[in-house]
Write a protein that binds this DNA or RNA. Sequence first.
RNA 1: GCGCCAGUAGCUCAGUAGGAUAGAGCAGCAGCCUUCUAAGCUGCGGGUCAGGGGUUCGAAUCCCUUCUGGCGUGCCA
Length: 550
Amino acid sequence: MIKHLIHDNICKILQDLNLSQQREFTVEIPNLADHGDYSSNVAMILAKENKTSPKVLAEKLIKELKKNKYYKKVELAGPGFLNFHLSKVLYHNMLWEIHKAGQSFGDSEFGQEEKVLLEFVSANPTGPLNIVSARAAAFGDTLYRVMKKVGYQPSREFYINDAGNQVDILAESLELRLREIHGENIGEFPYDAYHGEYVKHLAHKLNATEGVRVFMMPEKERTEHLKEFALNEMLEMQRQSLERFGVTFESWVSEKTLRMEGMVEEVLSYLTEADCTYEKEDAIWFSSTKFGDDKDRVLMKSDGSITYFVPDLAYHLTKIQRGFTKLIDIFGPDHHGYVPRLKAAFQALKYDENMLEIIFLQQVNLFESGEKVKMSKRAGKIVTMDDLVGVVGKDAARYFFIARKANAHLNFDLELALQQNNENPVYYCQYAHARICSIIKKAKKDKVLPRTFKKELCGKLCKTEELALIQKLTDLPELLELIAEFREPHRLATYTEELCSLFHRFYNKYQVVGGKDKELSQARLLLIDTVRNVLAICLDLMGISAPEKM
RNA sequence: GCGCCAGUAGCUCAGUAGGAUAGAGCAGCAGCCUUCUAAGCUGCGGGUCAGGGGUUCGAAUCCCUUCUGGCGUGCCA
């Protein structure tokens, strides 16, 4: 909030002085304390367009800026930086405002109620969710929460691929396992089938309720029945996994339903009308190369069935029809070859391709005892999201996934996350929260805690560590806006750690409760209670619990 | 071959969208509990920001190029 304040102040002065400001300048917190509390590059950025030198422009600005009583000192430094030394009073006022804001601190209208659809996870309903899905869930959900807080209208959606041929394979796998239960010799389990143990569990469950009745059905009916049963079970299993992980979705959209509603034919006709399809070797192709794709793509295979792309495009069009103006897809690492054809289709159908935004999450490697854990989906040998959450817990898992930026590979050290000790960074933040709660409890017991805090208390805070904490608190609103705008939830984890570090440092140096100066104690209680609240906001945005004791 | 992503301390990673002397955690070493939680704090050591060019007042950040790794390049999803 201070950055905005200074930025606006400079803008106003530039206007008053009739100076041009075409280029964007910044206000930042400098690395060195000597360079002040905040610094701006405004003079260097705007010197050229105002036909003057950075230093002359800076002096001009300083003369005006000095009239602001909240700046203790504004000086020119280096090649033309403006360095601001702030009055403590500004920090005290800020602390009071943050305290008053409570839970709503950081709320803003930044997103201007833009309707954003966040599609993530969207795993095939053919097995348990894996760890890449877990990463997507943590990432997407946190981005959703932050966007909501800063004034977007985001919505979370799960696209169910319930019509493709993997579902057929799932049903076949289930039937084989069912036959196995009934003592049939099924020979070697097919290479392409699903080998996971969960298919056996599924078979046992079905057998318990329906027994041999399944085999009395005509083959076609049986297949449909098995498909429906398996699909419902898998979907429910995935939904529960996600719920345990703290992630829910506003909507689940079924590919099968879209197909039944005729969306596929509609999309094919749109593309044909746009003159972007042709027939070759008994298949129907989309001439996506017209719009920058590497090669043309098949829409309808020579056997008359449709490729995955068509219903998926139809699905994306429904997002637009539902009024969303920004479509964010969060994909796994192996789908980037898919994007050009989707963007091409948007162009072909005269939609703004910039509405579509794809975020790629890179792969997750699990490490155990320094060794990479080898997984094979085909052999059913995978570590599932449930396994992971079961072992390390929801909080640690979410934290590890959020703390890395999206397009970086993530090495997940199972042993580290497993350890319930100080090597595990998530506890560092939770510990800070618990510590504050503990102090407040003690203050209550010692009757030092006032029923309500008075603003005048803020004036008692003048230590470097106290002011540093306040400054860090004021960063949050701008940070949340950046996270939403650039889709970078990992920065919230960094921020939370920094805030906690400042608190722990303060804690070790100063006593809150127990000193002779009761007002100072109360001022510090006001400070740490505000820190606690901001911490709780951050942890909540990441979907991590904020324990009152540990 | 072509395309996308990445390469920062021994390890895992940040780096405020071009800013001043590149940071944190872990690992290593040395300290701090008669006082609110030591799951914490303080100090020390550790770097050719993969290499090379360029753009400008200024580059880890932008452009070009080389190298290395991952992924993609199905009438799979």
